[in-house]
Each structure stands twice: as C-alpha cells, then as structure tokens.
C-alpha cells in the first residue's frame, strides 16, 4: 500500500515539475494572468465604486455572484454539520464514548481575562467589517473574528455560558438572516429596475448618494450579511463538534 502510494505521489509530482517549465517566471509582471482582466479592476475601482481596496470591490461588486454562492456553501456546510451530529433525545445511545471524559477545573484568571477581552475582540471585528473598504478586511474575516469571540467564551467558561448569550435557535436564524441580507440587496436592485446585484440603482433609495457612492454602500451591506452568516455558522459548527451534538457542557 505504502509503495503504491509513493509511486502515485512521485509520478504526479514529476508530471507537475515537468509542467512548471512552461510557466512564466515567478512574480513576472508580464505574466498572462496579470494582463487581461485585472488592469481594468485596478484602474477603474476608484472611479466606479469609490472603494480603494481592490480586493473588496472585486469580491462584493464585480464578482458578487461568486461570493453569494460561496456564502451559501458555508451556510449549507453548517446545516450539514447540524444534520450529521445534532441529537435531540437525552438518552445515551452511543456505543463508544470519548477517551478523555473528566472536566477541567474552571480557572479564575482565564475567566476574568476572557470577560475583559471579549468586548474588545468584538469591537475589533466590527472595525474589520466596516473598514474593509480602505484596509485589509471585510465580511469573511470580521465574521470569523466575531465567531471566535463567542468560541473563546465557550472554551473558557462552558458551552452553556455561550448559549445564554446566543441560543441555538437564534444562531441558526442569524445564519439565514445573513444570507437573506445578501440576496435581499440583490433582489432590491432587481425591484429598482436593474440587474441582480447591480448596486448602482440603490442611489434611488439612499438619500444624497450618487451612483458611485451607492455602489460603495451596497458593498458595505453585502459585507454585513456575509459577516452575520459566517459568524453564525462558525458558532454552530463549534457547538456541535465540541458537545457531540448534545449542546450540554462542551469541552
């Protein structure tokens, strides 16, 4: 088995090594990938969307469909984890239990530090979401940091402490709401008479906004939707994995 695996890996590796000879030199400004679509994005992003971070404008505006379906993939993965693991009956029907079963003693230093630091983590996450137009960041990163603050709460106290802040029902609902915000902004554009996810027409309902600024606002709305969905799904996956789907005490 090991020999067959090694031969397979080695032959695939050799084929790829051979293929690299045809590649353009590494970090070549004249490589074909950098010559066709991306110069338009780099040159026009300030004029067309008023967003200086090109990655954000391409992510949420020029390639909005891509991001919308990536968000729905994440949502589907969260639902899949819940369907696989979640148990609603109280009785123990498992044949094999985890090897480590004793509970760790709660530590007062860790709990106090967590209580102090969680609001700052969440504030930073909101900054990352809102400032994604002008600096690295955006919906995905901010959403994951927001989710991580709740996960930190669940690790240092226990899962019950996290579920008091954000219950299971509320969490799944938030995941759906995030996706709905994204597709709802797209549908709003259709209602106002343009293509799906063409934020230009939003200037009709945002007061004192030009068409370019409307695109910037549309990107912000979409990022908020992504952040809410990602946060909810990260919390749901962690809660299911750490409690075997029983939502009792967690790790």
């Amino acid at each position: 088995m090991k020999a067959i695996g090694l031969i397979t890996v080695f032959s695939l590796g050799m084929a790829l090594f051979y293929a690299t000879i045809d590649f353009p030199p590494w970090a070549d400004p004249q490589s074909p990938a950098s010559l066709h679509v991306s110069p338009h994005y780099i040159q026009e992003t300030m004029k067309e969307t008023d967003v200086s971070n090109v990655v954000t404008s391409v992510l949420a505006d020029y390639r909005g469909f891509d991001t919308m379906f990536e968000t729905s993939v994440i949502f589907t993965a969260g639902i899949a984890v819940i369907l696989i693991l979640r148990k609603y009956s109280k009785k123990e029907d498992e044949k094999f239990l985890p090897e480590v079963s004793e509970e760790a003693e709660p530590d007062i230093i860790i709990q106090t530090v967590t209580r102090i630091i969680v609001p700052f983590i969440q504030l930073f996450a909101l900054y990352v979401i809102a400032h994604g137009h002008h600096s690295p960041g955006g919906g995905f990163q901010g959403g994951v940091i927001l989710g991580a603050s709740f996960i930190l709460l669940a690790i240092s106290f226990n899962l019950k402490a996290m579920l008091r802040r954000i219950s299971e029902r509320k969490d799944i609902l938030l995941g759906g709401i995030g996706l709905l915000i994204y597709s709802g902004i797209g549908a709003l554009c259709v209602l106002l008479g343009a293509n799906f996810l063409n934020y230009k027409v939003l200037h009709l309902i945002i007061p004192e906004a030009s068409q370019v600024e409307a695109r910037s606002y549309g990107i912000l709305g979409v990022e908020i939707g992504v952040a809410i969905a990602v946060m909810a799904i990260m919390i749901a996956i962690y809660a299911n994995l750490s409690s075997d789907g029983k939502y009792d005490k967690g790790l």
Partner: peptide, 27 residues
C-alpha cells in the same frame, strides 16, 4: 493582481467549513 486573492479568500473560508463537515463525519 487582485483577482487570485479574491478567488482564494473565499476558498479559504469554504475550506474551513468543509473541515467542519469532515470532522463531524469522523465523530
């Protein structure tokens, strides 16, 4: 060139959710 960054940024976040599904199956 920002285009590969955009495509891969979403791929990383999708990879963590597939990791979650895989670990759920392992459990």
């Amino acid at each position: 060139n920002p285009l590969p960054h955009v495509l891969m940024l979403t791929a990383i976040v999708v990879s963590v959710s597939t990791l979650g599904v895989a670990l759920a199956l392992i459990l």
